[in-house]
């Protein structure tokens, strides 16, 4: 089965600067893929390339097997919410739903969109520039979901939401994924939000892919080792290392069966710790082997 989103050597240059370099990944169907990385690492560029808003400088991107920019029919299967959740300022919420209905034709689910907005207490006759940041994000997501897309691309969708709204948003997203075998590509600064929700991880650092893979696999093959500062350093793959005068904490990568070296205590690693470890060590990385991305 073709991957929901597949890129091959995808690169984008603006003037002299490379925003994304040689990105090769494949997100399987039905996954919730997280794209994380520091500002300027290329997250937004990758997402915009995925929805046809940018043209690749080199390489290719395909959504369900077709390049999104050249095939408006593919666009009908993609829902996108940009980082600033742009809406038409003078148009009301109801107008935006009408726009979605007219531009998306048969695949528009108006009843569920209205129901969703009613549940969130967002009035349909309010103009877009009178909505709060959180409400705009919810309206933008409603429009994207009402298309019944097969791929949902969300660029920092919860950045402007308060903690409760964030939780609600993400819970509903999980519900939608459950309901319809939806593939999600989502970027966020708040890695804690991604914990337990994302099952595929892309770490971008300095415009390149640093880490790529299944979250369960990554968490199974990494662990935190805590030991004395002057103890022997394990021979196996150290990703990052932090030391106080008494204690050292390592993030290591290894096979699941490798025993803990003596003098060290192993702890399971959280997604957040794993991401932070790699972000702090740009030279480390996890990329799929020659058999290709999983």
């Amino acid at each position: 089965m073709t991957a929901a989103l597949e890129t091959t050597g995808l690169s984008k240059r603006y003037g002299r600067t490379w925003a994304l370099r040689d990105c090769t990944l494949a997100v399987p169907h039905g996954r919730v893929a997280a794209v994380v990385g520091p500002n300027g690492a290329g997250k937004t560029t990758l997402m915009r390339l995925a929805v046809g808003l940018r043209r690749p400088t080199r390489g290719s991107v395909a959504v369900f097997g077709r390049a999104p920019r050249d095939h408006p029919a593919s666009l009908a299967r993609i829902g996108f919410v940009a980082q600033e959740t742009p809406l038409y300022r003078d148009l009301t919420v109801a107008d935006h739903l009408e726009m979605g209905r007219r531009l998306n034709g048969h695949a528009w689910d108006r009843p569920s969109a209205r129901e969703r907005l009613a549940k969130l207490s967002i009035p349909l006759d309010r103009r877009a520039d009178e909505l709060s940041g959180g409400q705009r994000a919810q309206v933008a997501l409603t429009i994207a979901l009402a298309k019944r897309p097969d791929l949902l691309v969300l660029d920092e969708p919860v950045a402007s939401l308060d903690p409760l709204a964030r939780r609600t948003f993400l819970s509903e997203l999980m519900g939608e994924v459950a309901a319809r075998e939806l593939t999600v590509l989502l970027s966020s600064h708040l890695i804690a939000d991604l914990e337990h929700r994302c099952d595929y991880l892309v770490i971008l650092s300095d415009s390149s892919v640093q880490v790529l893979g299944d979250v369960d696999d990554l968490l199974a093959t990494h662990s935190v080792l805590v030991g004395a500062a002057d103890g022997t350093t394990p021979a196996r793959g150290i990703v990052s290392s932090h030391a106080t005068d008494r204690q050292r904490t390592l993030v290591v990568r290894s096979d699941a069966d490798t025993p803990t070296p003596p003098g060290w205590v192993a702890e399971p690693i959280s997604l957040e710790d794993l991401v932070l470890a790699y972000l702090s060590e740009p030279d480390a990385g996890v990329l799929p082997g020659p058999e290709g991305p999983s």
Partner: peptide
């Protein structure tokens, strides 16, 4: 707003 309208159908 092109991000919105160019990603509809």
């Amino acid at each position: 707003t092109v991000s919105l309208v160019w990603t509809q159908g």
